[in-house]
Design a protein around this nucleic acid. Structure first.
Length: 260
DNA sequence: ATGGCTAAGGCACTTAGA
């Protein structure tokens, strides 16, 4: 069971790259973020033609998340609980049958939160509090759980090529990192960090200033696993070569493989 | 405060990203 998360930065602009990557990697479940599209005009036919079931929670112009899967989900929940007034399309969760057990997978797009000192950062922290509550409830189910997405958080200094450049940024603020650690402290494990302590395992390189060419990256896309999922983890990795493709997203896919 | 690029909306430039 191969599960991937990828912030594609616009599904229309990235459709060719998305189709090529789906064919190359053939994930069982792909969690997409920043589809920047409404549900009605999501290019589902091209994706369904590759054998995928498509679930979207879209929004006009920005945000938007999706779940692509080879098997149809048993159920779908398109919202993160805790604030019915939140209009941002940043969450969708599905449950699949995995060898007779439920497998719960969320595609989440955590708010960026910049600039500090504004309601944007307050919104980020509030969203993280809601995610924390949802993670607690989900953990209590003792299911296979994967919370995958663009967390917009650099967990540690080793997760940035130039960590000092991110001081004062919402992605590397102590409050943001502490909220991420609280998730870990619930018993969730960061799939990449369960396989390597190496620096330089990045998932994002800015379009500007030759960040990709200089390998000036950051690791902000994460797959958090419940103990039940972690017990079955066979491998985890990052498809960094996708960043070198034509018309790339600024993020690349991050993956985890669960054994039956 | 900042951003060398990119995407979307909608057709000149703004918003948003990280």
């Amino acid at each position: 069971m191969l599960i991937a998360t990828w912030n594609i930065n616009g599904v229309k602009a990235r459709l060719d790259a998305l189709l090529a990557w789906l064919q190359e990697r053939s994930p069982d479940i792909a969690c997409l973020q920043e589809i920047k599209n409404v549900d009605e005009t999501f290019p589902r036919e091209a994706i369904e033609a590759l054998g995928y079931h498509v679930e979207t929670h879209g929004q006009k112009g920005f945000n938007g998340v999706a779940l692509l899967s080879k098997e149809k989900p048993v159920s779908i929940e398109p919202r993160l609980p805790g604030d019915s007034s939140d209009e941002h399309a940043r969450f969708i969760e599905g449950v699949w049958d995995f060898h007779g057990r439920p497998l719960r997978v969320a595609s989440l797009y955590l708010p960026n939160g910049n600039p500090l000192g504004t309601e944007k950062f307050t919104y980020k922290l509030a969203w993280m509090q809601r995610l924390d509550a949802h993670a607690r409830d989900s953990m209590a189910r003792e299911e296979l759980l994967v919370l995958a997405g663009d967390y917009n958080i650099i967990p540690e200094r080793g997760d940035a090529a130039r960590p000092d450049n991110w001081m004062g940024d919402a992605l590397f603020q102590p409050e943001s990192r502490a909220a991420y650690r609280r998730l870990i402290n619930l018993g969730l494990s960061d799939a990449i960090r369960a396989t390597t302590d190496a620096d330089g395992t990045y998932s994002f390189w800015d379009y500007q200033a030759g960040a990709w060419q200089k390998n000036n990256g950051i690791r902000i896309d994460h797959l958090l696993l419940s103990p039940e999922a972690q017990d079955r983890m066979a491998s985890a990795g990052i498809d960094r070569h996708v960043r070198g493709w034509e018309k790339p997203s600024d993020h690349v896919p991050v993956l985890v493989e669960l054994a039956a």
